[in-house]
């Protein structure tokens, strides 16, 4: 379970989260998450990995307020300025009718800022994520990697206490994904954010995180909470080092055992 920490450092604390879904077509109920506990400490980069459909994205939505749990509660540190949390969504989550700049400024406009001020505040973020000169472009004119940079900038602009990232690189090709991973670490280092990251890629989880939470198949429960003791700053070479590979194997074993269980349920999940 979660490492004990002084209460003042906690950014987020989830206890006993349980989420049920009702499939509208089949009218069946199923459990996405069950007795899920997780603490995240300030400045930490925490990643949740698990098999498809284990409810990891569901948890993020509960934290973000997009979904309500059927039981349990989450305490989220109230940010002195900015939002308590902000979400970086999966692929192509930019509004196609807004320019990149207006997309990045969107969170501030939601918070009631005028469009003009919001644009001014968004500009440095565009620079931070390496999109300088692309502010006037529309999303369809951007590559997948660039779209996800803008997606990240949009969340960073509202200065969130906790940055939630829902498989942001899942749709990218392998090379772009690696570049984006190291870019994310660079930005994380500069922006000094607490991150809760979701992925199904084990190497991504190990490479990015301070802690990796391994989840079981549905209904999602925590199988392991692994601290990644790799030196920072990390570059991509770290992926070829023995400790990295050992972490990968450890997590893979845990998930593979789950796949065997779930294969009998879902025919391969």
């Amino acid at each position: 379970m979660a490492v004990e920490m002084a209460a003042k450092d906690l950014i987020m604390s989830a206890k006993g989260i349980r989420v049920e879904y009702h499939d509208r077509t089949t009218k069946e109920a199923f459990l996405a998450l069950e007795s899920f506990d997780l603490d995240v400490v300030e400045g930490e980069f925490v990643t949740i990995v698990g098999p498809s459909g284990c409810g990891k994205s569901t948890f993020l939505k509960v934290v973000n307020g997009l979904l309500r749990a059927s039981a349990g509660e989450i305490k989220l540190k109230a940010a002195a300025k900015g939002r308590d949390d902000a979400m970086v969504f999966q692929e192509s989550a930019l509004f196609p009718w807004y320019s990149v700049l207006d997309n990045v400024a969107y969170g501030l406009v939601c918070a009631g800022m005028s469009k003009k001020d919001a644009r001014e505040r968004a500009k440095p973020m565009i620079r931070l994520v390496g999109l300088e000169g692309f502010g006037d472009k529309y999303p369809y004119q951007l590559s997948g990697g660039m779209q996800q940079r803008a997606n990240l900038a949009r969340a960073l602009t509202v200065d969130p206490g906790l940055l939630l990232m829902d498989e942001p690189f899942a749709a990218l090709d392998a090379q772009t994904r690696e570049i984006m991973q190291s870019e994310l670490l660079r930005i994380w280092d500069q922006a000094k954010k607490t991150v809760l990251f979701i992925t199904h890629q084990i190497d991504e989880a190990v490479y990015l995180s301070d802690r990796v939470i391994v989840m079981s198949a549905r209904p999602g429960r925590i199988l392991a909470d692994i601290r990644i003791d790799l030196p920072r700053p990390r570059d991509l070479h770290v992926k070829r080092t023995p400790p990295f590979v050992a972490y990968e194997e450890q997590i893979w074993e845990l998930i593979a055992s789950q796949m065997k269980t779930s294969a009998s349920q879902f025919g391969g999940g």
Binding site: K8, S13, A69, S70, A71, E73, K75, K77, D84
Partner: peptide, 14 residues
């Protein structure tokens, strides 16, 4: 009492 400074997201009150 340490809840000050935290926002609580409660579960659905069915």
């Amino acid at each position: 009492s340490a809840d000050a400074g935290y926002r609580t997201i409660r579960s659905r009150d069915r």
